[in-house]
Structure formats: structure tokens, C-alpha cells
Design a protein around this nucleic acid. Structure first.
Length: 108
DNA sequence: CGGTTGACTGTTT
DNA sequence: TAAACAGCCAACC
């Protein structure tokens, strides 16, 4: 069997993000691991970075392991926070999200 | 082929 | 609690 092509890898990442329930968040590393790509958190970030504006994907539900919105070139952190709040995710004063409460737990 | 870069993460200060 | 460090790995040049 041939190993998965790069395109398939990206598709898996996008598929995982697409399955994050509304009102929940997942970390880059978590998405990577669930997509069968351990230690590839940065690859997830890269995939999101290449996402076209206006995409239907719930990209805003991906945050870092600290429960905070990651900085990026080109801005967009502000809108991410707005979208999360809009679906009920509480963002604490320090910009942190309680992963115990809002983190996505696929096993459930 | 080798150095740099970065939407990351876990450990140590 | 936050910042600094070190490890990580694929894309880029």
C-alpha cells in the first residue's frame, strides 16, 4: 500500500477540524494526533494558514495547547475570539479558554 | 544539501 | 501566572 499523499494529509486535517462540535475547541496538537499525525501541530497551523478567506471550515475552533488564540501574520485573532464567543465559548480575562470545559473530547 | 522559519508543545525559570 | 528554553518537523529558499 502506498503511503498517504500530501493532499490526503491536508484533507484529514481539514476533516478533523470540520468535525469539531459547535461551542467546543481543539488544540493544534490534538487535531494532528487525531488525524494520525503525532507531533505535527505546526503542520495544522500551516494548513489553516493556507485556508482561503470565506472558507466554510470552523477554523476558529482551533487554539493552542495553552487554551489561547495563537498569534499569526495578517491578524484575524480578533475575529476568532468574536466567533468563539458567539457560539458560547467563554474567554477569560487573560485571553484563556478553559479546556476542561470547552475542549473537544472526541471519545464522548 | 543545509540553514531558516513558524496559526506548536512540554518543561523549566 | 507568565516568560524563557529547548525540542520538534515540514515547508522554503
Amino acid at each position: 500500500m502506498a503511503l498517504p499523499a500530501d493532499d490526503d494529509v491536508y484533507q484529514r486535517i481539514y476533516a478533523m477540524i470540520d468535525s469539531i462540535p459547535r461551542g467546543r475547541v481543539a488544540s493544534y496538537g490534538q487535531i494532528a494526533a487525531q488525524a494520525g499525525l503525532p507531533r505535527r501541530a505546526r503542520l495544522v497551523g500551516r494548513a489553516l494558514r493556507e485556508l482561503p478567506p470565506g472558507s466554510r471550515l470552523p477554523w476558529h475552533r482551533v487554539v493552542n495547547a495553552a487554551g489561547k488564540i495563537s498569534a499569526r501574520a495578517g491578524g484575524g485573532e480578533r475575529e476568532q475570539g468574536r466567533r468563539l464567543r458567539a457560539e458560547g465559548v467563554r474567554i477569560a480575562k487573560g485571553g484563556r479558554i478553559d479546556l476542561e470545559r470547552f475542549g473537544w473530547k472526541p471519545a464522548w
